[in-house]
């Protein structure tokens, strides 16, 4: 593995321009965590299964462990830190906090970004639809119900609806 040629990338991460030289094999989540020291995205399974590494790239939530850093050249990347600071997920964070929809918090950044994407796409998802959409994000602590409750609460609040029952 001598003299691996580094690839130059230009990307925008959480609104900041980033120019970097990366190994071809470096994953996007390792790039964020180890090169940019944005440690809010987590590495859980390294197989694109658990969703702990979820990152928003060009408006879509992707698996940071399945995308290479070199593929982020020219992309607009938002990690949980950026989404949090920009207030994009503020109502979700508040609802998760109040409902205790997190325990260890390792899956939480991915849950928030994926939930945010769902609510952008669908204004009034049913509980079943929320469960379906979040099924690519594993949580070992909560058993999911509190997370579903929190997302449902935000959906209802955003829609300004008075409907409050579990379906």
């Amino acid at each position: 593995m001598d003299n691996i040629e580094q690839i130059k990338i230009n990307t925008v991460v959480n609104g900041e321009k980033v120019e970097a030289f990366v190994e071809p094999r470096l994953s996007l989540v390792d790039f964020l965590r180890n090169e940019l020291e944005l440690t809010g995205s987590h590495v859980g399974c390294e197989h694109g299964v658990c969703g702990a590494c979820s990152i928003q790239v060009d408006g879509s939530v992707v698996r940071g462990c399945l995308m290479l850093a070199s593929q982020a050249d020219g992309a607009d990347v938002i990690s949980i830190e950026g989404a949090s600071d920009a207030g994009i997920v503020a109502d979700l964070q508040k609802a998760f906090h109040e409902r205790n929809a997190l325990q260890c918090g390792f899956c939480t950044p991915g849950m928030l970004l994926t939930s945010s994407e769902l609510l952008d796409q669908k204004k009034n998802p049913t509980r079943a639809e929320i469960r379906e959409y979040l099924s690519g994000n594993y949580c070992r602590c909560t058993g999911y119900e509190a997370i579903i409750d929190a997302v449902e609460t935000v959906a209802i609040d955003r829609a300004g609806s008075s409907h409050n029952g579990k379906s």
Partner: peptide, 11 residues
């Protein structure tokens, strides 16, 4: 829980 929600935990 707030720091974990902000992606500012320290694992």
């Amino acid at each position: 829980a707030k720091r974990l929600l902000a992606g500012r935990g320290t694992f």
